[in-house]
Write a protein that binds this DNA or RNA. Structure first.
Lengths: 326, 326
DNA sequence: ATGAAAGCGCTAACAT
DNA sequence: ATGTTAGCGCTTTCAT
């Protein structure tokens, strides 16, 4: 009988140095033969860590979040971590519930563009789990966060539009509790020239929202529509085209994020690009050290940049109006 | 000192009946006050289950898989399960590695459109974990699977195109190891009329792939391009428009899946729609009973259906050719 | 209705 | 270099 103790097996399975090579192979063989695989759960309990990071997103169907998630996964994977995903379906009320559950299964949490209230966010400290926030600066910087500074890029967008003669802009606003919505709106209001009128029409975060809001936006007489994000902008473009209105000839459209579709529609969408993959990478890099030791809480600010494509052009003199339906 | 044993606390936390209401509130209070939350890991070890389902996808950035994942999460959540996600980044070689790791952390696995070889797939039985496969029929039906029958919808597409006079079609093929690719191709070949010529140009699974393959497809003289999926089709449309070629006036385009963008581009994309959310739902419904008891291995076949939008139209007499660049 | 005790399958001192 | 012994923090018989 080849005795062999649990510890030895454990050492072999964990590639601990100082194990007799003979034993190593013997154990490996036996394991392979018996189809033995260490129980992750038992390892987790014993080690006091799960190797899992919980990620909360408002909506996985939004390519922005899918991309951020990919960034997190890729980076976390290099440290042997996996991602447990919770999709709140754009329902702020669901977020807390998800987080409480995620927290019990993971070593740390990454919140992508959380829609929950600031007090709720602050209350998360009680979870007593390392948390990193992406795309929203937590009040009082309670948590490390990776945010983006889009002021300069927005200012650039405004100059771009101004140069094209646009003096009536309409912002298709995002979900009520999206921090990015407030920031974008504020960046716009502080960037436009005094001669420029800025309207605001409620939309949402998805294609349908932009599609649905397009007509209301048109009614403001704006010559350029700016979507809360690219999905909203693209939804609006679709609606405009249905109405027989040509972009950018009759009306210009711009968005935020630079999701991959912005590049592949025609006309291409002018947009304030977010560093999507970096969001994910940086989020992990902030979280990772935090998992091992309570390190200093930091914040990382990335910067957005303007990408000009075909959806913005010179303002039409006569203002946009529906043409013959497509 | 209010004694209270571990067992009692456990009973309270698990809402076990037959506990003195007084004690219940006392324990609840104490827990709240101390911020006590049962360790998920310890529960997992003790209960012998993790409450986690591992999901493997080829690419989360593909809305098809994001949607399927959402379907799985939503359904699994109703049973108290969460999803651990692994994104193989369209690299078949990575899939096995991910699966082995996922298997150690989860109670069951759902593989979405796995690209790995059939033998590798068969070898998964050794993982000794309930597995359900989505969108690929496993050889020998080793695992329960949810697949789609798109033959009828493809036939319908072919009739639709034929009625428009298209007799030269070009299929922009998908990733080498995507089972869906072979199925779609085979459905096409067996559906076209004998007078119709079907070409095949290699593309891939993403927007860029369709974009890059468009010119080669044009060169075949085809009057209608059919993308492996909607992304490929839309990528091709983008390229065509760059070339000044109008869809559908000069050339028709169709795709597979019916991702949300297919509806919101202009022209809308004609496509063979996959039951995306159902894929996810059904996958969970197949897996769920399997987790508790080894039940009979079943298979569920959903059906695709054709959605006709603006990207397909009557064939142009003279054949497509680049116009003035946009 | 509650407590005591065993055990889930590992890891990590500690001893040898 | 390997074996022994305690836990990790719960759940769950089994007593009471």
């Amino acid at each position: 009988m080849l005795s062999g103790s649990k510890s030895t097996v454990s050492r072999v399975m964990n590639d601990t140095p100082n194990v007799d090579p003979q034993i190593v192979t013997r154990v490996r063989d036996a394991a392979a033969r018996l189809g033995y695989r260490p129980s992750g759960t038992a390892q987790n309990l014993s080690r006091g860590r799960t190797g899992i990071v919980g990620v909360l997103v408002p909506d996985l169907a939004n390519p922005l979040f899918a991309t951020i998630l990919k960034g997190i996964s890729a980076e976390a994977e290099t440290d042997g971590y996996r991602t447990l995903v919770a999709d709140a379906n754009e329902q702020p009320g669901e977020e807390l519930r998800h987080l409480h559950e995620l927290a019990r299964q993971s070593d740390g949490l990454i919140l992508c563009g959380p829609r929950m209230s600031t007090p709720d966010l602050a209350g998360l400290t009680e979870l007593d789990v390392p948390i990193v926030i992406v795309n929203r600066k937590p009040a009082g910087s309670l948590f490390p966060s990776v945010t983006v500074d889009s002021r300069e890029a927005v200012a650039e967008l405004c100059r771009h539009l101004d140069a094209f003669g646009h003096t009536r802009l309409c912002y298709l606003s995002g979900p009520a509790h999206a921090a990015a919505d407030a920031e974008r709106w504020s960046a716009l209001t502080s960037s436009i020239r005094s001669r420029t009128k800025l309207f605001r029409v409620p939309a949402g975060a998805m294609l349908d929202d932009g599609h649905a809001a397009a007509e209301a936006a048109l009614a403001t007489g704006a010559t350029c529509l700016i979507g809360f994000n690219d999905l909203v902008a693209l939804g609006a473009v679709a609606r405009l085209q249905e109405l027989g209105i040509t972009v950018p000839d009759q009306i210009s459209v711009a968005g935020f994020d630079d999701i991959v579709y912005a590049r592949f529609t025609s006309p291409g969408l002018t947009t304030v690009a977010m560093p999507q993959t970096e969001f994910g990478q940086e989020a992990w890099r902030l979280l990772s050290p935090y998992l091992h030791a309570r390190k200093t809480r930091r914040t990382r600010t990335l910067s957005a940049h303007l990408i000009i494509r075909g959806s913005t052009g010179p303002r039409q003199n006569s203002g946009a109006r529906p043409g013959p339906a497509a």
